[in-house]
Design a protein around this nucleic acid. Structure first.
Length: 230
DNA sequence: GCGACAG
DNA sequence: ATCTTGTCGC
């Protein structure tokens, strides 16, 4: 896995925001997925209530059958606090460590967070995509910015997420009867493909299989590192 | 000043 | 995100 253009993570909030504006200009919102998508990865991070211990997990599934192919994990500390809009400075370092442990880069990555549906157009998914040079999709469970009408109740129903003249993403119902997901391009992919891939990864749960799998794995890590007695 | 606010 | 048990509903 090749990483390029490293930059510090211990920045003051103001500097982090300035860096985001700089990086956002490099985000590519065009379809650069390979002709045949065969590997889809999901990534998620878990940690303790007031602790600094983080647990990242990456789960790679085959596409479109969604069978387990490989996985990688990493754990470490983080000093950066949670500040809406600056999530990547808190979680990306440990996520990148997990990706370094993957034998091979997947064709596309689903992230539990926003892509360009961000105040400065650089959510966690976009930031990760830039670092890895791999197509990414933001699949957030709630809204960070932008406005939209309520989408339909059935799986596949969708409405655009907008901010003035900009279309930031798609508010997509991924499972009938559940709250929608906020899908937006991360990097190297366009709106249409982002929704297409995400929907193809949804089976019987609101969360796409890749991120759902990573979520379960990161939770196992946290629990294993936590409770010793029984 | 007030409300909003990914994970 | 995390702290937490059972419980109402499809």
């Amino acid at each position: 896995m090749i990483i390029s253009d490293l930059h510090p993570w211990n920045l003051a909030p103001r500097d982090a925001a300035a860096l985001q504006r700089q990086l956002a200009a490099q985000v590519v919102v065009k379809d650069h997925l390979p002709p045949e998508v065969r590997q889809v990865a999901g990534v998620d991070v878990s940690y303790k209530k007031h602790g600094k211990m983080f647990f990242a997990a990456v789960s790679v599934l085959s596409f479109p059958d969604l069978e387990p192919l490989s996985r990688a994990t990493a754990q470490g500390l983080s000093e950066f606090p949670y500040i809406p809009g600056l999530l990547s400075f808190r979680e990306l370092p440990i996520v990148l460590e997990a990706f370094r442990r993957l034998p091979q880069a997947p064709d596309v990555i689903l992230v539990d967070g926003q892509g360009i549906a961000h105040p400065r157009r650089l959510g966690l998914a976009s930031h990760l995509g830039l670092w890895l040079g791999v197509p990414t999709i933001g699949c957030a469970k709630s809204r960070l910015c932008g406005e939209h009408p309520a989408p339909g109740k059935d799986k596949g129903d969708a409405v655009p997420l907008r901010d003035g003249e900009d279309t930031l993403g798609t508010v997509l119902t991924t499972r009938t009867g559940t709250r929608p997901l906020y899908v937006s391009p991360g990097h190297l992919i366009d709106q249409r493909r982002a929704v297409e891939i995400t929907l193809a990864c949804c089976r019987r749960y609101r969360q796409p299989e890749p991120t759902r799998s990573a979520h379960l794995l990161s939770n196992e890590l946290r629990r294993a590192a936590a409770d010793l007695p029984s």
